[in-house]
Computed example of a mutant assay.
Amino acid sequence: MSRRILVTGARRGIGAALAVALAEPGVTLLLHHLDAAGEADRVAGRCRDRGAEAEVLAADLADAAAVRDLAGRTGPVDVLVNNAAHASNVDLGELPLAEWQRTFAVNVTAPMLLAQALSPGMAERGWGRIVNITSATVRLGGPSGPSYVASKSALVGLTRSLARTLGPAGITVNAISPGAVRTEGEAELAGDRDVAAAHAGVVAAQAVPRGLVPEDLTATIRYVVSDGAAALTGQVLEVGGGLVLG
């Protein structure tokens, strides 16, 4: 059966790993990026190598009009993976309102708008999957800044609300919560902080004491969007090596 899958923030890191994991014959991957066409094209090539079709789409998810335009350009989709995020590490005392607003626009409003635009088509077909990528910081309260933690908490609430709303139409809505996964974006955001030292502390706190990579999430995403996961909805799946339990 053919599937059309939109993955936001698919140019590298977790988004790229999820997109490639979902690529197979009969699947069309719609790979969203912001100002990174070269990287997104390389991910598209990896998807095509696995037998899928792939298309690259640019949009600034902080702009509601651009989000609606993106939904229009994708056409009908069967699976929506809301992975793109604005990763804010600004401390409370220095947090501008504009930074707070942009973080919520990308991390919460854009997933809502995409679900609003794309779920009616899923409902017409009686099948759909929406997967929101949250963060273990929701459970831990940090170390990211307050706008990021609060936005990812709001995304969990959105996940549960959409699961209730869309379940009768055959659409499941779940969240995957990564732990401390090593990505390029994380290193760029760290600034003067020692990322390796921070990760060592996190790994020591995990039940599975090893560093995590984006590919640690791929088996989970494949299950969540499968026919076999039809009874799984409104859940937050922690994939963090046991950093948080229960």
Rank of each mutant, 00 (worst) to 15 (best):
P214K: 09
S153H: 03
V202W: 13
G145E: 13
S144R: 12
I133Y: 00
T218R: 00
G157N: 09
R210M: 08
G170Y: 14
Y223R: 01
A180D: 15
S144C: 08
P209M: 08
P146I: 10
V224D: 04
V173R: 05
T137Q: 10
V202T: 15
V173Y: 05
T137K: 01
P178V: 09
R164D: 04
T137G: 09
R193A: 13
V173L: 10
A205D: 15
L212G: 14
A197H: 07
D194N: 13
E188W: 13
A154D: 03
R222E: 08
T165G: 12
S147H: 14
G142L: 14
G121S: 08
A163E: 05
A196I: 09
T159V: 03
A123Q: 06
H199K: 15
G145S: 10
I176H: 04
V156D: 10
T159E: 02
M122W: 06
G145K: 08
T183K: 02
A123T: 04
S153T: 11
R182C: 05
S147V: 13
R222C: 07
P143F: 02
I171N: 06
P120C: 11
P146M: 09
T165D: 14
S147C: 08
V213Q: 05
L166D: 01
I221K: 01
A204H: 08
I130D: 02
P168V: 12
R125H: 12
S153W: 04
V131M: 09
V149I: 05
H199V: 07
A187R: 15
T218L: 00
L155I: 03
E184W: 13
V224I: 14
I221Y: 01
A187G: 12
P214I: 04
L162A: 05
P120G: 12
R182Y: 14
P168K: 07
L140V: 06
G170E: 09
V156K: 09
V213G: 03
L189Q: 10
G167Y: 01
A150G: 06
T165R: 15
M122E: 09
A200I: 08
E184A: 14
V208G: 07
T183Q: 04
T134A: 04
G126S: 04
V202S: 12
P146E: 12
Y223Q: 01
V173K: 07
D192K: 07
T183V: 11
E186A: 06
L162R: 03
I171S: 10
P178K: 04
S151A: 13
L217N: 00
D216W: 05
A136T: 13
V195C: 00
